[in-house]
Write a protein that binds this DNA or RNA. Structure first.
Lengths: 237, 237
DNA sequence: TCTGACTTTATTGTTAACAATCCTGTCAAC
DNA sequence: GTTGACAGGATTGTTAACAATAAAGTCAGA
């Protein structure tokens, strides 16, 4: 036995890939819009992509479906979710409920280091915008909201936000005007200003307004996305 | 072939048990505190209990762990989660963020039928309290909050609430005074009054106060639950 | 040429056997 | 009597083969 016979605890940074890692990686790809809605996620392809067995992939897909980021069709496989307009409104309603409070809590609990981290993040966002690296810009834009949830240091809400931000990317991919950026980083900048001024109410208000702007830039009008009602289309007159 | 060769779509109320059903059933059992924190959930026992194969059970346990209702220990099996005090505070913080808004939205969107349903529910709660059926009383008490989320008709927040209510039951089981009821149904009654008066602000405020009361009845003091720090216990003097 | 049924192929879903790990109980040694 | 190692049993994790389903392609018939 050349290796140590005992292991105090599972090595957290071990070399083995866990389901959670795969989920996280797919989340990222969806956020960056490298996996558009409707993309088929075949098991064999993912096995090769991640170099793991089929079971791991199936577990990961199951977890992703429970977060409504992929849809599982029986005997037909897994597809990147295509949120409906109704679901989109629900996601934004949830975000508008959570994120102003998250912003306020983050502000209350932010250390100087946290604010420095936010500043550095905003600089990266700004650079990505001007560097034509679209994927990176989108990713950072979502990551800003995740960062706030991390600073708020509430694990429950952090997990919720990861799901909501990911689904928002899908929603923008479907309902967003093609040429429009996801988040104008000016908004993020102003939220950071509120942090520097330690004005919790302003942070919450700016966040709410920011989310309203994003939702407003979408076309969630009564085009009944998803299941098209053939009956109404072909009804008389 | 005695059976119809074709089936237009999957029978939604078919006789086959899906993972989601198992998850829901275990959620219920946890809410009713029939599955206390730390309970071992062995695969073979669950297979017999639900009459399904091992794979279904493993999938269900994976889903439950992603909702942090069960803990998965590698090579050691699944256990009903034992939230720490920190996690408990996070759950309540999330609930206090979500539920006042849910109450307000539910009130805005409640039909007369919804309010009737709430009234009927409160009557059941009341009866269960006076009928010694503790499990039922606890279940209905949590169900009230779920009902509001359903009336608010936001699928995202409904899913969040199911998780949070379930975890709250675990938290009360760990940190609650043994003899204290989970929710005093008076609080629920007053929330219903706000509904009848169509006073959204009151509903939101009453919900916030209700949650504060519940959290206040717990002993989340600085007893570092979970990993006990042996070093500090056995440090000199 | 187009339609419809049939065959083929590929992918997913399930089962069962195997491997690995951990817990328990036993036993010898100090 | 307590501690440590060892063996047995039970439970979990993984793999691979098999079954079932759905999609794609083929071919005959009109």
């Amino acid at each position: 036995m050349p290796v140590a016979p005992y292991r105090i605890d599972e090595t957290p940074s071990g070399d083995e890939i866990v389901e959670e890692d795969i989920v996280e990686r797919i989340f990222e790809a969806v956020v960056e819009q490298r996996l558009p809605p409707g993309t088929k996620l075949s098991e064999s392809a993912l096995c090769k992509a991640f170099g793991v067995g089929r079971m791991r992939i199936r577990h990961s897909l199951l977890l992703l479906s429970s977060r409504e980021v992929v849809e599982l069709h029986a005997n037909r496989g897994a597809y990147v979710a295509s949120p409906t307009a109704k679901q989109a409104r629900e996601v934004f309603e949830a975000r508008m409920t959570l994120e102003p409070t998250i912003a306020r809590l983050a502000l209350e609990r932010a250390t100087e280091a946290d604010i420095a981290k936010l500043s550095a993040h905003l600089k990266m966002e700004h650079d990505a915008h001007h560097h034509e690296s679209r994927h990176e810009a989108i990713r950072l834009s979502g990551q800003f909201h995740i960062l706030l949830a991390q600073i708020a240091s509430n694990g429950v809400m952090l997990r919720m936000m990861k799901e909501l931000v990911t689904r928002t990317s899908l929603i923008i991919g479907i309902f967003g005007a093609p040429s429009v950026a996801n988040c104008r980083d000016d908004d993020h900048e102003r939220i950071l200003d509120a942090f520097k001024a330690r004005d919790g109410q302003a942070a919450a208000d700016l966040m709410a307004q920011h989310l309203r702007e994003i939702e407003g830039s979408l076309d969630l009008g009564n085009k009944n996305s998803g299941a098209i009602d053939l009956v109404s289309i072909f009804s008389k007159k």
